[in-house]
Design a protein around this nucleic acid. Structure first.
Lengths: 207, 207
DNA sequence: ATACTGCTACCGAACGATCGGTCGGTGCAA
DNA sequence: TTGCACCGACCGATCGTTCGGTAGCAGTAT
């Protein structure tokens, strides 16, 4: 769509599709119609090229799904590798992971959305689910440690608390739309992340 | 499957499918494979009758979806009609609605799951999404009133707080499995509902 | 008892449409 | 002249749905 100019002379930007730029289009359609509800014909119309041309860039429909999910997972696991997620008190690390996960969810919104909606019908989808469980597991250990430290309430089961925390975090993909980051619409990713952290850790009720 | 005996002589129970008993089978498959990922062939295998026989009981695939969603919606809206949801302080009504919504989610799990996963590809799905928004709206008004009463924290936007609350509540369908209500597995619906209420209103952090 | 009738619950075969994917090109820029 | 980005036509398979038919049973007339 946007193709302003090329600086210098090297092949800076092409007007044609790359696997990644095609992926961007495809993922949006996947989210709108669901992966199974999207046909290659739908994709070709959204991309403005013929159905068969898509196969010039990617192996097929499932590769598009795999690429999207890979991107989402690397963003998510990247959070766990950040220094603030590896050092310090468990409660502080948990808060950091929560905040950063929300931010990644929002910056990589369509890719993570796709990951969270996978049902397990194909090998690719089952792999995605397994990797996602790994991520949840890592965060769950953080919660467990924070409870042991006495920083998190112990009257709610750790597994259940993890699920509720992720329920809150992951719900972002259900309603956040990046259009209009100013007034009247959505907020910045930092603002939303802050609200999630506050609500999750301090609760809705007034003191 | 189970057909023990008939008390008396009236047509108490038949061995054949009814629209409702067929729906029960279908909805389980829909959840496992996704609605679009489920073919009538899949349904016929799960039900143990031929593909064409399904059309003897229901008009088609979409009617199964519509029936399932209707059931979910009536359960949800039923909560709003309960006395404790209509009388008293807003914060108490909100807490009641939260608790009961979780319980309905769990008792009507597959039907509500289907409702929450609808994408809007057909008229039926768009109707479902509109009705769901109505429900969210009603709860959102409760939140707004509770903030005005000074019972809920005012430093998080009401719309955002509503979404996070529903994120937590609705996440139940992602992980709750009714198998084994005793130790080692899931809990009763009252216990889970209590945990959700506590976590949502008081937060995860220890005092 | 027997035969006929009507109905319910089911079936196999087949419908046109659409699915994901393949193939043999073609236009064009380097 | 080579190779990239793209195309229309077409593939077998599968989609949701329709159709004509049938086995079994209840009710009823014979």
């Amino acid at each position: 769509m946007d193709n302003a100019d090329s600086i210098g002379r090297m092949p800076v930007k092409r007007d044609t599709y790359t696997p990644d730029s095609l992926l961007k289009v495809a993922v949006e359609v996947f989210i709108e119609r669901g992966y199974d509800g999207t046909s290659m014909e739908h994709l070709s119309q959204a991309a403005g090229i013929s159905k068969s041309s898509i196969y010039h860039h990617v192996r097929g429909k499932e590769e598009l799904l795999r690429r999207a999910i890979s991107r989402a997972l690397s963003g998510l696991f990247g959070v766990l590798d950040e220094p603030a997620a590896r050092e310090g008190r468990a409660i502080d690390r948990l808060e950091h992971v929560t905040r950063r996960t929300v931010e990644v969810l929002m910056t990589e919104l369509p890719y993570v959305t796709l990951l969270l909606r996978v049902r397990g019908n194909t090998d690719t989808e089952r792999w995605a689910m397994a990797r996602r469980r790994e991520f949840d597991q890592r965060v769950s250990e953080l919660l467990k440690q924070a409870v042991a430290d006495g920083d998190l309430r112990a009257d709610v089961d750790v597994r259940l608390a993890t699920r509720l925390l992720f329920g809150m975090i992951n719900s972002v993909v259900e309603w956040y739309r990046p259009s209009r980051a100013g007034r009247g619409g959505a907020a910045t990713s930092e603002e939303v992340a802050e609200a999630v952290v506050r609500t999750a850790f301090a609760g809705l009720r007034n003191d």
